[in-house]
Simulated assay, not measured.
Amino acid sequence: MENYTVDEYALCARFKSKRKKKRLVKEDFEKQLIQIKKLEKELWNKRKNLPLVPLDNPYQKGWQSNFVLREDVARSSEAEFYKSLLGKINTWQFSSEKSFKGKKKRKRRNVYVEKIQTVKEFSEWEWRSPKLELTEKEKMHFYKRERWCSNFKRFKIHYVFNEPWRYVLRISPYMITHTKMVDSDLESEIQFLDNYITNLNLRHKINKLVDGFSHRWSYYENENPKEISPIKNKSLQVLYQQYVDEMI
């Protein structure tokens, strides 16, 4: 009688070999990770699509600056045309200071300079895109301009509005009137799933499996709660008190 190995007998008897069983377990685990990623994305989208709820007491959070029609242009016969165009090229800036000054280093010193704000300019790719919302009449109010791009080390073409004097910059309080609705059940599901991924250190495996690579983003570099050392995470106040007690 011939002697057969376990793998040969399993092959003849149509049983699964140890290697195949191990591979099937791994494939099943990877399928579970993919489903976890899909579920997490679905929960995030549900949170993102929650409606806004008006606040009982609106409050101010800094300042905002945007362009409005100049008074004489608003009274002219072409006010509707320039108002419609402004809705497509208007820009907004937000700041905690009404002066809208930003910090900039000059000669090893930090100075505050005013932020330059202009109406929107279109790149060559945006100008040729079929998704551009400008009409042919509106396009006639733009001119082509070449500008040096330090990132690409070459000149790039931009289309600039040729009558910026028709709009003036307005600074107004930035009021918070609405807030995002909070779904306690949804937040509980998201937190439960996030705790499961964090406790089992699955974030790196999921990203590498779904995206093909995994970056160590600081957002996901939270310390595993199971690995937190009570000595390492003591507050400075407790450590200082222990030091004082030892000295006494």
Results as ranks from 00 to 15, higher is better:
residue 4 Y to V: 05
residue 5 T to F: 06
residue 8 E to P: 06
residue 12 C to E: 13
residue 14 R to Q: 02
residue 15 F to P: 00
residue 21 K to S: 04
residue 25 V to L: 10
residue 25 V to K: 13
residue 28 D to W: 12
residue 28 D to R: 15
residue 30 E to W: 09
residue 36 I to M: 15
residue 37 K to L: 11
residue 37 K to R: 13
residue 38 K to R: 07
residue 40 E to H: 14
residue 43 L to E: 02
residue 46 K to D: 01
residue 49 N to T: 00
residue 50 L to F: 02
residue 51 P to E: 11
residue 51 P to L: 10
residue 53 V to A: 09
residue 56 D to R: 14
residue 57 N to Y: 10
residue 58 P to H: 12
residue 64 Q to C: 14
residue 64 Q to D: 09
residue 66 N to Q: 10
residue 72 D to W: 06
residue 76 S to A: 02
residue 77 S to Q: 11
residue 78 E to T: 08
residue 80 E to Y: 09
residue 87 G to H: 11
residue 90 N to G: 08
residue 91 T to A: 06
residue 94 F to Y: 08
residue 97 E to R: 11
residue 101 K to Y: 02
residue 102 G to M: 04
residue 103 K to D: 01
residue 104 K to C: 06
residue 109 R to G: 04
residue 109 R to L: 08
residue 115 K to W: 02
residue 118 T to H: 10
residue 118 T to I: 10
residue 120 K to N: 08
residue 121 E to C: 09
residue 122 F to E: 00
residue 125 W to H: 08
residue 128 R to I: 01
residue 138 E to H: 04
residue 139 K to E: 01
residue 140 M to K: 12
residue 141 H to M: 00
residue 142 F to A: 03
residue 145 R to Q: 02
residue 146 E to V: 05
residue 147 R to W: 09
residue 147 R to V: 08
residue 148 W to Y: 10
residue 150 S to F: 07
residue 152 F to S: 13
residue 154 R to S: 07
residue 155 F to C: 06
residue 157 I to N: 00
residue 161 F to P: 02
residue 163 E to H: 06
residue 163 E to W: 06
residue 166 R to H: 00
residue 170 R to T: 10
residue 174 Y to C: 15
residue 175 M to F: 11
residue 176 I to Y: 00
residue 177 T to G: 09
residue 178 H to V: 13
residue 180 K to C: 01
residue 180 K to P: 04
residue 180 K to L: 05
residue 181 M to K: 12
residue 182 V to N: 03
residue 187 E to T: 10
residue 188 S to K: 15
residue 193 L to Q: 05
residue 197 I to W: 04
residue 198 T to Q: 12
residue 201 N to S: 14
residue 204 H to Y: 06
residue 204 H to N: 01
residue 208 K to A: 02
residue 209 L to D: 03
residue 211 D to A: 12
residue 213 F to T: 03
residue 214 S to W: 05
residue 214 S to R: 05
residue 215 H to V: 07
residue 216 R to F: 10
residue 216 R to D: 13
residue 218 S to T: 14
residue 219 Y to W: 14
residue 219 Y to S: 15
residue 220 Y to I: 14
residue 220 Y to A: 12
residue 231 I to A: 11
residue 232 K to D: 15
residue 233 N to P: 06
residue 235 S to D: 05
residue 237 Q to N: 13
residue 242 Q to A: 08
residue 244 V to Q: 11
residue 245 D to C: 11
residue 248 I to R: 14
residue 248 I to P: 09
